[in-house]
């Protein structure tokens, strides 16, 4: 596999991009303002797009250039723009009622990263892979998964939920580019498209929520129980 046989320079650049993505996930965790989440998500998508192109260059997968360009276009530009449009209609621009304060959620996030590292280390040793980039990619893939779930469970605003889901998918996207760069192009393209459809659906729903419940906080979603 590609990630196991990289030149030192390529390995360093890949690691930098992967760690940068993880740091941006922490930026999202540590912020109260919805707009900051969205910007961090946009930058994260740019990093992943650059990573795709680099993997395409080093591995000789020319179709990954297209994937990288589309990632930057869809996830880095169109999605943030769509979310910004939703955000402008909302009364709440920040999380108002935190279950866990941003500083505490950073600590929880750090614990999750350690857990993800242990799992990744275990898998890599079971497979007999000792490449740092592989372990790093697995760690970041699992960590972003866990951090995404943390954002989904500990936050109330609808936009936070959407961004949590997008972080979940960004993690998989990032990991899959490094681990399985040869994954068929069609699937990746459809995934990008699927995401766009999903966010459009969310946009419509947010508007309905606002019209019918008068708020986009999941604290108000408490009628259906039992």
């Amino acid at each position: 596999m590609l990630a196991a046989h990289l030149s030192p320079l390529a390995a360093a650049v890949f690691s930098l991009l992967v760690i940068g993505s993880l740091l941006l996930a922490f930026v999202m965790l540590g912020s109260r303002w919805l707009k900051d989440y969205m910007l961090a998500f946009g930058v994260q998508s740019w990093l992943i797009g650059i990573l795709s192109a680099l993997i395409g260059y080093y591995g000789g997968y020319h179709e990954l250039y297209a994937v990288g360009a589309l990632t930057v276009l869809f996830r880095g530009l169109v999605l943030p723009w769509l979310i910004l449009r939703i955000l402008r209609q909302l009364p709440a621009q920040r999380e108002l009622h935190e279950i866990v304060s941003p500083s505490s959620s950073l600590i929880v996030g750090a614990a999750l990263v350690i857990f993800a590292f242990l799992v990744a280390e275990h898998i890599a040793s079971a497979l007999g892979l000792n490449s740092n980039v592989v372990v790093l990619a697995l760690t970041v893939m699992f960590s972003m998964k866990l951090i995404g779930f943390q954002m989904l469970t500990l936050r109330h605003e609808a936009i936070s939920h959407i961004l949590g889901l997008l972080v979940l998918e960004n993690g998989i996207f990032l990991g899959s580019q490094i681990l399985v760069p040869g994954m068929p192009l069609m699937i990746e393209l459809v995934l990008l498209f699927d995401l766009l459809v999903a966010v459009a659906c969310f946009g419509v729903l947010v508007r309905y929520l606002l019209a019918n419940i008068g708020s986009t906080s999941s604290r108000e979603l408490n009628r259906l129980t039992g």
Partner: peptide, 16 residues
Amino acid sequence: MEAAWKYIIVVSAGIS
């Protein structure tokens, strides 16, 4: 609307 929102969030997160 509440049911629809819970549905799409829980299921999308799950099948990710």
